[in-house]
Lab assay of single mutants.
Amino acid sequence: MDVFMKGLSKAKEGVVAAAEKTKQGVAEAAGKTKEGVLYVGSKTKEGVVHGVATVAEKTKEQVTNVGGAVVTGVTAVAQKTVEGAGSIAAATGFVKKDQLGKNEEGAPQEGILEDMPVDPDNEAYEMPSEEGYQDYEPEA
């Protein structure tokens, strides 16, 4: 019985440690998101679009440190934060509304985080759909 109880105690310690790591990862992701939003706020009209992409990228980098179902929630929060940063930029006159959601080359930025393969159960990952990809044929 002692062996059984000791095993359960060790398992509990492992769960607590994993929860603490997840909590730490979420806190880091939130900190990076805040950094990115402050970065966007300090940019001029020309830099705002690039700044919004930076927020998304920093958040995406930190999301990889967070495991399990938390990833889905962090990704949703990050996307809403990026959308909010863009709205703030438009409201303050840093950028025109028609410039939001495009990178410096004018290509749409939507789907940055949505296409990231995420499995809350950590069982399997699927690649994003290939609808947006084109076949590449090298020139002879």
Score class of each variant (00 low, 15 high):
Glu139Thr: 05
Gln134Thr: 02
Glu104Tyr: 11
Ala53Ile: 09
Val95Trp: 13
Gln62Tyr: 11
Ser9Cys: 09
Ser129Cys: 07
Glu46Val: 02
Glu123Gln: 09
Glu83Gly: 12
Ala17Arg: 11
Gln134Asp: 10
Lys60Tyr: 15
Leu38Gln: 09
Glu57Val: 14
Ser129Glu: 04
Glu137Asp: 08
Glu126Gln: 01
Gly73Ile: 03
Ala124Met: 15
Lys97His: 09
Glu123Tyr: 07
Pro120Phe: 10
Glu126Trp: 07
Lys23Ile: 00
Tyr125Leu: 06
Asp2Val: 02
Leu100Val: 15
Gly101Phe: 15
Gly101Val: 02
Thr72Leu: 03
Ala76Asp: 02
Ala90Leu: 10
Glu20Met: 10
Ala85Tyr: 06
Val55Tyr: 15
Glu123Lys: 01
Ala29Glu: 01
Val118Lys: 11
Val40Leu: 09
Lys102Glu: 11
Asn122Arg: 12
Val49Ala: 15
Ser129Lys: 06
Tyr133Ile: 07
Thr64Arg: 15
Gln109Pro: 09
Glu20Val: 02
Glu104Val: 15
Lys32His: 01
Gly7Met: 15
Thr59Ala: 01
Lys32Asn: 14
Lys6Gly: 01
Phe94Trp: 13
Lys10Asp: 01
Thr59Pro: 02
Thr72Ala: 02
Val82Ile: 07
Asp98Trp: 13
Val70Met: 14
Tyr133Asn: 14
Ala53Asp: 15
Ala89Met: 13
Pro128Trp: 08
Gly106Leu: 05
Val37Met: 11
Ala27Asp: 09
Val16Ile: 09
Leu100Gln: 12
Ala27Pro: 00
Val55Ala: 06
Tyr133Gln: 06
Thr75Asn: 09
Gly67Leu: 06
Thr54Glu: 01
Pro120Cys: 10
Gly25Glu: 06
Met116Gly: 05
Glu131Trp: 02
Gly132Lys: 13
Asn65Gln: 03
Glu83Phe: 02
Val37Ile: 13
Ala19Glu: 03
Lys45Cys: 06
Tyr136Arg: 09
Gln99Val: 12
Thr81Trp: 13
Ser9Arg: 14
Ala30Ser: 03
Lys96Gly: 09
Gly68Ser: 15
Leu8His: 00
Asp98Gln: 07
Gly36Arg: 14
Gly25Thr: 10
Pro108Tyr: 02
Asp2Thr: 02
Ala140Trp: 14
Lys60Cys: 02
Leu38Trp: 03
Pro138Glu: 13
Leu113Thr: 08
Tyr133Glu: 06
Glu61Asn: 01
Ala27Thr: 13
Val74Thr: 00
Val82Ala: 02
Lys10Ser: 03
Lys80Leu: 14
Ile88Ser: 02
Tyr125Ser: 03
Thr75Glu: 05
Gly41Asn: 07
Val77Asn: 01
Lys43Ala: 11
Leu113Met: 05
Glu114Met: 10
Gly47Asp: 11
Glu126His: 03
Asp2Leu: 06
Ala89Asn: 01
Val49Glu: 04
Ala85Glu: 02
Gly84Cys: 11
Glu131Tyr: 15
Ala89His: 12
Met127Glu: 14
Ser9Phe: 07
Ala17Val: 03
Lys21Ile: 13
Lys43His: 06
Val63Lys: 02
Pro117His: 09
Gly14Asn: 01
Glu13Tyr: 14
Lys21His: 15
Ala124Arg: 10
Pro128Met: 05
Thr92Tyr: 09
Tyr39Met: 12
Ala29Gly: 13
Asn65Trp: 02
Glu110Ser: 10
Asp119Thr: 15
Gly25Trp: 12
Pro138Cys: 13
Asp98Phe: 04
Ser87Cys: 12
Leu8Met: 02
Thr75Ser: 08
Asp121Pro: 12
Ala56Tyr: 13
Pro117Tyr: 13
Val77Ala: 08
Gly106Pro: 08
Glu139Phe: 13
Val52Trp: 04
Glu13Pro: 03
Val15Arg: 01
Pro117Thr: 13
Glu104Asn: 14
Tyr125Ala: 09
Gly41His: 02
Lys34Ile: 12
Tyr136Ile: 06
Glu126Cys: 07
Ala27Gln: 09
Asp121His: 07
Glu126Lys: 05
Thr75Val: 13
Val48Cys: 07
Pro128Asn: 08
Ser129Leu: 10
Asp121Glu: 06
Thr64Pro: 03
Leu113Tyr: 12
Gln79Trp: 04
Gly51Met: 06
Glu61Ser: 08
Val16Met: 14
Glu28Gln: 06
Ala30Arg: 05
Glu61Trp: 09
Gln109Asp: 06
Asp119Ile: 15
Glu104Trp: 02
Glu130His: 09
Val40Asn: 01
Val63His: 03
Ala91Asn: 15
Ala107Asn: 10
Asp98Ile: 13
Val37Tyr: 06
Val37Phe: 07
Gln79Ala: 09
Ala76Tyr: 15
Gly51Leu: 05
